[in-house]
């Protein structure tokens, strides 16, 4: 890390620079976050919020109720597997296409990056609805083309997860692709050419040259993907109509919404929120620690 010797001497400067952001983030984030932790310890629903019923302190009662619920554990397991799958596929697709972009002509590059931007631009809600329409059992184009009239893509748990996963990947690979492509572009031409002269194939170049050089960028991409995919909500909620047949496609965020927010059990909902945050934090810290061991720092 290079430092600017002159500016460094001004000890208070960073504070001044951070101040505007903190003025927004402390009241809009830190304090509500504190409230979230607080709420998770109370029996707090709509009658408590507006009905003048006193909020009852239940200690870890909400957490106990949650951990004692078998459904919670199966949903948690399902969410981890689904999110991990989405992260891996998103990264693989994004990275492969980024490499592809470096090897194609101008026209193909422009076409592909525009297509990716279009997928990226589509709000999660509209993307999910369009895909659902494409895979509709009766009116959908896909069944028509595949000659599977009436086939229900949401009937089997794994097929439904695969379909929703495809939409999640469709929404999120452009970020990975464009970020990595831009990163590759920033690697000096000479380094890449040297690799090509050595006769390295695309995969070797990627692993030996690009991954090490882009590690900071990859770190960001991985962490963001983990965070986004673990919290996936809209795609599951819209496409499987709130968790699938008999709840077979439930993920944690939808579960929290159904269990807690839709019926205004804010205390329980906050507890689920705290649990989700802690899980994500643990995963991220593990990842960061692994990175540090291999010589990278935050």
């Amino acid at each position: 890390m290079r430092r600017s010797a002159t500016i460094r001497r001004q000890r208070l400067t960073p504070l001044w620079l951070l101040l505007p952001a903190l003025v927004v983030l402390v009241p809009m984030f830190a304090y509500p976050l504190y409230q979230l932790g607080l709420l998770s310890l109370f029996d707090y629903g709509q009658p408590q919020v507006s009905g003048g019923v006193p909020a009852r302190f239940v200690g870890l009662g909400n957490f106990r109720a949650l951990f004692g619920d078998q459904v919670f554990w199966s949903v948690l397991g399902q969410t981890v597997v689904f999110a991990a799958g989405c992260v891996v596929v998103t990264l693989a697709v994004g990275a492969a296409l980024a490499m592809l972009l470096t090897r194609v002509g101008r026209v193909a590059r422009t076409v592909l990056s525009f297509a990716a931007l279009a997928a990226w631009a589509a709000p999660a809600m509209t993307g999910s609805v369009v895909w659902l329409f494409l895979f509709d059992s009766n009116l959908g184009l896909v069944n028509e083309v595949l000659g599977l009239p009436g086939y229900n893509w949401l009937y089997e748990r794994s097929v439904a997860f695969a379909l929703v996963g495809a939409v999640v990947v469709w929404h999120s690979f452009p970020f990975v692709m464009i970020t990595l492509y831009a990163g590759i572009q920033a690697i000096p031409e000479s380094v890449r050419e040297a690799a090509a002269l050595d006769g390295a194939g695309a995969f070797t170049t990627f692993r030996r040259i690009i991954v090490p050089m882009l590690r900071p960028l990859i770190t960001i991409v991985v962490i963001q993907s983990i965070i986004w995919d673990f919290k996936v909500f809209t795609q599951i909620y819209v496409m499987t109509r709130g968790g699938g047949i008999a709840g077979q496609n439930m993920v944690l965020n939808v579960y929290a919404y159904q269990k807690a927010f839709a019926s205004s059990q804010y205390g329980l909902g906050s507890a689920i929120g705290v649990v989700m945050t802690v899980i994500l934090l643990v995963v991220t810290l593990f990842y960061l620690r692994a990175l540090r061991r291999s010589g990278e720092a935050l």
């Binding site: 607080l38 408590q48 507006s50 003048g52 802690v278 810290l285």
Partner: peptide, 21 residues
Amino acid sequence: LTALVALALGLGACAPSTEQP
């Protein structure tokens, strides 16, 4: 992590907002 949990659970004297009807 412990510090974070402590922060999240750091119960002040205040209870959540309840509005009197």
